[in-house]
Design a protein around this nucleic acid. Structure first.
Lengths: 220, 220
DNA sequence: CCTCGACGATCAGCAGGCGCATGGGGATCA
DNA sequence: TGATCCCCATGCGCCTGCTGATCGTCGAGG
């Protein structure tokens, strides 16, 4: 699950990025509106946190431009409470939710999860069930034969990526793209390491290797 | 679905055009940067494949000019691997994706499909059914009379190529061009080797030899 | 109807690449 | 400062992909 934060207050941006990374999301940060538009346009993000007051291009215009280009990525807007910009305008341009500064971190995380849940399954069930394995994406917990398995943040992110596309082959490049952030430039071997860890914890049969193509999670 | 190819290497351009036409896209080709800019500016294309080294006007400038004029058509850039031009610069000018020569045809098609999908328009149906044989392109699985047949990456690629054009004759040269790199110049016998392997796994009757012309997959 | 040449099919063997496992070092958090 | 997590590096084994040689088949022409 990969997020983009477009926020020019460096301290706030850093703080959000750290917290969300700890939650298990892959987080990229940009400080400029135009840059934010380009990155969000890549289509690899599952959600965009978008400040309104930005250098380069303000948040409303970024949001409107994304929607005009046909992107339906969930957008959570941030704004200062003091007039000039207001909620209605934000929602008008196509934002999915809206938060007024200052806000508490837990509220932000709750809103993000709500938006992702809304997009993810459409229904109220954030639990993906695959044979003996159950994945609760909201609680970030995994059960095997009823007993809980503890996964690290990255392990969970890789599993989630495979699970949301269960039954189809996901290439190593795609996993890298969605789980790691854009600063990462390392060995694709890292994916194999995490696949290996997941197999050790969840059983060897769950994840199938498709040589030369990627990995596939059986849908049942 | 209409594509524009801006590429001055005539052989490569022709080859791409033929292959993509076979995939079901309508393809136009121009060999000059300025001409490419004009055509792309007409706004009738769903995607532009844009080489960087071009007579008239180089690819970066074409791309930048299109973006400056407000066009958001997806752009896939092509470039030779040897320095001077680099990825970052391409993406900076507003390209959506980027491919280094030499690249394999299947990779190119995958990127094109990914870009088009990102824009909301879906690709063709992933499951191809031919009599007793079923090909699931997303899961990379093939079933014969209901039971799964395991194919290697290359075997699958050859089969996929034949299947997308089921009922028509596909020449050995076309298969070579589409499945192997453009740079590949080995023994064309390799195609026969893979046809042989596919017949062994899927039954001898599925793939018909058209002597002197190529192979044909019966559509049912 | 037979012969011959060209094209296609198949097989075995080899080298290289891909995927997997493992251990260690660096960063981060309590 | 200890524990955990993440990433990198290395080595190894197996499978894949390709080559080259041989065998089979088709079709034309005498």
């Amino acid at each position: 699950m990969r997020l983009l934060i477009v926020e020019d207050e460096k301290r706030l941006a850093l703080s959000l990025a750290k917290g969300l990374t700890a939650e298990g999301y892959a987080v990229d940060v940009v400080h400029d509106g135009l840059e934010g538009l380009h990155r969000a346009g890549e289509g690899v993000y599952d959600l965009v946190v978008l400040d309104i007051m930005l250098p380069g291009m303000n948040g409303y215009r970024v949001c409107a431009a994304l929607r005009a280009a046909g992107h339906d990525v969930p957008i959570l807007m941030l704004t200062a409470k003091d007039g000039e910009y207001d909620e209605a305008e934000g929602l008008d341009t196509g934002a999915d939710d809206y938060l007024t500064k200052p806000f508490s971190y837990v509220v932000l995380v709750a809103r993000i999860k709500a938006l992702l849940r809304r997009r993810g399954t459409g229904g109220p069930s954030p639990v993906i069930s695959l044979g003996a394995i159950e994945i609760d994406t909201a609680a970030r917990r995994v059960h095997r034969d009823g007993s809980e398995v503890t996964l690290t943040a990255k392990e969970f992110a890789v599993l989630e990526q495979l699970a949301t596309r269960a039954g189809t082959v996901v290439s190593k490049a795609e996993i890298l793209e969605h789980v790691w952030d854009f600063a990462y430039d390392g060995d694709p071997n890292i994916v194999e390491v995490y696949i290996s860890a997941l197999r050790r914890k969840l059983g060897a049969t769950l994840i199938k290797t498709v040589r030369g193509a990627g990995y596939r999670l059986e849908s049942r």
